[in-house]
Design a protein around this nucleic acid. Structure first.
Lengths: 222, 222
DNA sequence: CATTTGCGTGACATTTTCGTGAAGCTTTTC
DNA sequence: GAAAAGCTTCACGAAAATGTCACGCAAATG
């Protein structure tokens, strides 16, 4: 949370902790950028009205660097500051709340953004019915037997396992797994889906990658 | 979407369809007003710079009539036209975007407006008497038992469940579920209605899809 | 009650979509 | 710098989905 006024910081911290989050705060530009890498946040609450107008600077910096580009941003604007909203959304903020806002509204937006962007937390071993993926060691096992796959298949599986129970079109998968602004044919996804299925088919785990005809693919336990 | 320039219309249509919306377009005042009632839109994207300054006229007309008063409006303005923005918000626009705008910004605003106006019905599981539809995972269950159906039947059911207790003619259903400018026979709807009923008949949920003789179909709990 | 109108239903041809193997090219590895 | 591995595209066949029609039944009409 980047917010220069201490009372508001405290209030927000209280609300966030009440809801099970672990807020880290920053009051100015430098402090905010320092905390981007350590501790790496799941979401940034960014006050747009920082002294010196540095809110937009922070957002821009985040979008420039690979590691912080995908951290979702919710910006906090004052009512009526329409220009700020426009610029914020242009820069890539995912959502915004307008001061004054109710804690309930803020929580709803945080949950919505996190659910959309990163349903599962990072850097922990993900286990779905014995199919385990370790983002740190870059290993995948099926009932503790090691599996082999290419880099793209690994990223694809990682994305799927952190975003389960949700349909993604081929273009969305290209955006999330390949990266934005990559000109690759839609159907290329099919081939990697096939390779991924083949790679994790050992104990029938290929059934987790499901085709949703006309829409895309889904990673699901059901 | 009311926009007089065809290239921009096409671009916006493309973006909207990519994001799962079903845009209907109008290029002028008359065409726009005609489409307000049929097909009844969930949201109006209104270009403020229509020839003859008729953008504001459309907004005024909408606010005068009972049935169109509550349809949210997002207006599209040129950068710097502050007076237009002020007048637009006075007349009752819910939000605005400034040309040129990024697709991401437009989508964020559309979602924000829809969420504010109709908190439910977006990305949430819809449950009608045990018949559940999850727009995110693209799943339908009847008393928690999974149901199978084709893409068209899914879209049809999704439309029905978000617009219950209201009769729709075959042509209206074609507009909303198939999309504009599709030349398909009216009677084709019958067949898909039948397939939908069959698909959700597990626990008698087919009774929710009702025939209104001479008028069309209705999704209703009564 | 006879007729007309509107709707349900099964079948079928066509189109769309997806899985799959192979080939060519690029990147990485040793 | 050569070999291996990986990525992308293409082509083809299989499967699913779609649109249309014909027929029969049921509801409205008068």
């Amino acid at each position: 949370m980047v917010e220069d006024e201490a009372p508001i910081r405290d209030m927000l911290c209280f609300v966030l902790e009440q809801n099970g989050y672990q807020p880290h705060t920053a009051g100015d530009y430098d402090s905010a950028l320092n905390q981007l890498m350590e501790p790496y946040p799941d979401l940034v609450l960014l006050d747009w009205m920082l002294p010196g107008g540095s809110g937009i600077q922070i957002a821009k910096k985040m979008k420039q660097h690979e590691l912080t580009r995908n951290i979702p941003i919710i910006m906090i604007t004052a009512r009526g500051e329409e220009e700020d909203k426009v610029r914020g959304l242009e820069v890539g903020a995912d959502d915004y709340v307008t001061k004054p806002f109710s804690p309930k509204e803020l929580m709803a937006r945080i949950k919505a953004v996190i659910r959309r962007v990163a349903p599962t937390s990072l850097d922990e071993v993900i286990d779905v019915q014995g199919l385990k993926l370790d983002p740190v060691s870059h290993r995948v096992t099926s009932n503790d037997e090691p599996l082999e796959m290419g880099p793209t298949e690994f990223r694809l599986l990682h994305f799927f396992m952190t975003h389960p129970e949700r349909v993604y079109s081929r273009e969305q998968l290209l955006d999330h797994v390949w990266g934005t602004n990559v000109y690759v044919e839609d159907r290329t996804v099919d081939v990697h889906i096939r390779r991924l299925r083949k790679a994790i088919s050992l104990h029938g785990h290929d059934a987790l990658v499901q085709t949703v005809r006309g829409s895309g693919y889904r990673f699901s336990v059901k």
